[in-house]
């Protein structure tokens, strides 16, 4: 009995969670706010040769060298498909903390922090985004706009791709 009650309670707590939303290309994406560590203005990125194409390079984050991922490339969005409307000064690096590593995600702009209800994040039965299913946790709508919630873990530690490479 006690267990069941507890579970029910947990569900209620988990109902809403905060998401950081950001723009890549024409779409708005989201990731759990607690995964994000900070948002910085892009400093000079040093290109690292002999790495995958989506690795934009490395930056100096207060003395620590951290890699920066080109999300547009990683998500498989082709540059020419997108009319880059975002201004250069909007571009940001979202630094996330995952598996004890700091990794920067290069995005076209950071929107706001939104409270998204879990039930609103639906599975993507009909994925028309062109992004691989496993990179997407779900899709949510918030005041008319569509937000693609990313599965950062799958996105960054892509088993399939590593094997293939």
């Amino acid at each position: 009995m006690a267990n069941i009650q507890k579970e029910a309670k947990n569900e209620k707590v988990a109902e809403k969670e905060q998401y950081l939303t950001f723009k890549v290309g024409n779409e708005i994406y989201g990731l759990k706010l607690k995964q994000a560590k900070e948002i910085i203005k892009p400093p000079k990125v040093t290109n690292v040769p002999n790495t995958k194409e989506y690795i934009l390079g490395v930056i100096n984050l207060r003395g620590q060298v951290i890699p920066v991922i080109n999300l547009k490339n990683k998500l498989g969005l082709k540059e020419d498909d997108i009319k880059d409307t975002s201004k250069a000064q909007n571009k940001k690096i979202v630094v996330i903390n995952i598996k004890d590593m700091l990794i920067g995600l290069y995005v076209d702009g950071v929107n706001e922090v939104m409270n998204l209800a879990v039930e609103n994040i639906e599975g993507v039965a009909d994925n028309k985004t062109g992004i691989r299913d496993e990179y997407i946790k779900g899709v949510s709508t918030f005041s008319d706009s569509l937000i693609i919630v990313l599965d950062i873990n799958n996105l960054l530690f892509d088993q399939k791709e590593e094997k293939g490479a």
Binding site: V48, N50, T51, V58, G63, V65, I66, M101, I103, L156
Partner: peptide, 14 residues
């Protein structure tokens, strides 16, 4: 010398 992030392990020639 700083590590080149664990995320980029074993980069050739770096």
């Amino acid at each position: 010398i700083k590590s080149l992030s664990d995320y980029l392990d074993n980069v050739k020639n770096i």
